[in-house]
Design a protein around this nucleic acid. Structure first.
Lengths: 211, 211, 211, 211
DNA sequence: CATGAATGAGCTTTCATTCAT
DNA sequence: TATGAATGAAAGCTCATTCAT
């Protein structure tokens, strides 16, 4: 189920590996955010992680592994936050709570989401599918949420529209991160949530545009 | 109006500069598409452009200039295509024609749009604003289109929603390029246009969901 | 007599040192055979020896010590095998038995001989003489064997020729190892022995060319 | 016929390539002689060649190419010197002149021969055959020389012995290089030639051991 | 004694950029 | 204007060696 691409480490102690990778991901995110993956050197990653270049390479095999670990971790965290919602009622109200929650998560993890969003494409053909699979899972959460509304008769949509709507929601969340320059000066995150929900659910019976 | 960041060239003959840069952009786009900006070398760009590395540097000052020229050009082309629409009527019908047209353009220039979309962030702090400004102009075209519908009473939205809707349309167009892996196997471009327009204009009086 | 260059070890228990070094030499020979001294890492040597890198360094001071131990050991083994012959009669027949025996030994220890032959030059200026001294001793065995034939009147040679002949025999033994690619497809070891003995002893009174 | 493994160069000018490679080979030989291939760095090779590390890599693709070029060149030079002899008469006298000539060549190119002899094994599986093929050609020159004596009735040997004798001669030439430590203090090159020829041709009718 | 995580000097290689021709 | 040989800073990565546990 949780088929994860293993990143080889020559260190045996699992706890240590976990700890070092935490440091590494933390350091790397802050660097990738500033200068992108390609302009960040392995030495910088090592320094930002608090250990030497030699030690860095005890925990990864190649620079790209850092990127994979970063992307993998970010998805896991975002997903964990979403799963914590546990919304099943299948009401419009629950759907909009779900959207709001997701947008909040994206807002809180802005840097991470931005990094992942912009750098994931630099992953090798080998690692990319693992990350895309996780993304798909998240989109599917929204799909389920919407589908339940359809089943309860609160929304009228065919499956294709449900699928596309889920993707739109997902992308609009990321958008808050990758189009900061165009959005953040115009809206607070709460305003953004309100407006987008408004546009997404316009014309839905029983949904009231917030005045 | 057309405040363009000049890329310095040591060659004086304007015609020649134009011609060489055309070659350069053409070559670079196809390379960036394959391997991204950072993994493409200046030698490769020169070769793909049909001249030597020395000549390449007669027309640019640094590698980044190529990226800027590429982004700049792509925006210009997309914008030119949009301007060619010349829609002013301010009806819902015209708006959806505008959206369809933009999506078609994005579909036709998929590679270019993807390149620009993914690599623009590698532009220096210096060049980025010029590109973002062009993007803004394009968003504003949609804003105008929507605003006209509002003014004619065909749509009911406050200015903030208009602004956001315009951005959503713009991003959904790019989405067709940057989420190919998730969209192209599910929809043709025409289906995508139909579905997205559907979702964007749901609940708009007088708009009929396509059966 | 057996002036051996001591390789420092921080472990005091002599038995243990002996045992560990046996493991180490065995592991190292098989690695050096495959990839040569320089391309073999200390970690690989440790792993092939059945202990950790830390432990390896309890029994040596530097990587080069491993090479020295390997070379030293191989010479000792070859020499032990030669000494086991115990030929003193001073007849041509005995000489050719000696040659045949040496060639057989070289054949059986092909890998080891090849390793030592190819890698000994990587020994430091410090260690080399000890290995060369052992080599000299082996050459001298042949010298003695030949000299005895001369003394018994079975061979007519001046001392210089005796010395050179001994070296030729020695090198022709190694040749079976280091020129496998040119020899092994043309001769079996027995044929090689026969032919070489033939060439070495041509024209010696009382020596009959086989066949 | 002269199937040579091409070493890729990004420099087009053939004359320049030739010249730079001459410098490179010269510099590399002197370094390899002192410290061996593995202990010599590419920067050292560049410096010894009189150009920068960047320039070095304009003329090779990888460090190993330098080794290949060195080996290839040395064989070519030795072979050229041997071919210059042009001995066809098929007399014992000519054979021994040939041997003497070869030994002299080896003596003059001692460093080069030693380098090639000790480092050739570090060539990749890819390049090795090309070098071995050249070696084989040189052995065959001696084979031909001997064979002609056999055909003229000056020597009595079967083909297998001819083949082996040729190899022995070849190896004994190299031996003068790789066993300096054991030979040079005992003989001058002329003495070495005399003694070895003596041993090689003992018992050959009409051949007089030099007193 | 044994372990293996940590270190960092140093390696090979790349590539944007320059400049003499 | 056009060329491409030359440059060297800087990158990713390795590995012999140490030392706290």
């Amino acid at each position: 189920m949780d088929k994860r691409r293993e990143v080889q480490s020559s260190v045996k102690d699992e706890r240590l590996v976990e700890m070092r990778r935490d440091q590494m991901i933390k350091g790397a995110v802050s660097l990738f955010k500033q200068k992108g993956f390609h302009r960040t050197t392995t030495r910088e990653i090592a320094r930002a992680s608090g250990f030497s270049i030699g030690t860095l390479y005890e925990y990864i095999r190649a620079k790209e592994d850092v990127l994979y670990l970063v992307c993998d971790r970010i998805y896991d965290e975002v997903r964990a936050q979403l799963l914590a919602m546990d919304l099943n009622a299948g009401t419009i109200s629950n759907l909009s709570i779900g959207i709001a929650h997701y947008f909040k998560v994206v807002d809180e993890m802005q840097d991470e989401v931005l990094v992942m969003y912009q750098e994931a494409k630099s992953l090798s053909k080998d690692a990319l599918p693992y990350v895309l699979k996780k993304e798909l899972e998240m989109v599917q959460m929204f799909e389920t949420l919407i589908q339940q509304c359809v089943e309860k008769g609160e929304l009228h949509m065919d499956p294709e529209q449900v699928h596309l709507l889920a993707q739109n929601i997902f992308v609009q969340g990321q958008m808050w991160g990758f189009r900061r320059w165009a959005l953040h000066h115009a809206y607070t995150i709460d305003e953004y949530i309100e407006r987008q929900t408004d546009l997404l659910l316009r014309g839905v019976t029983g949904y009231k545009t917030v005045k």
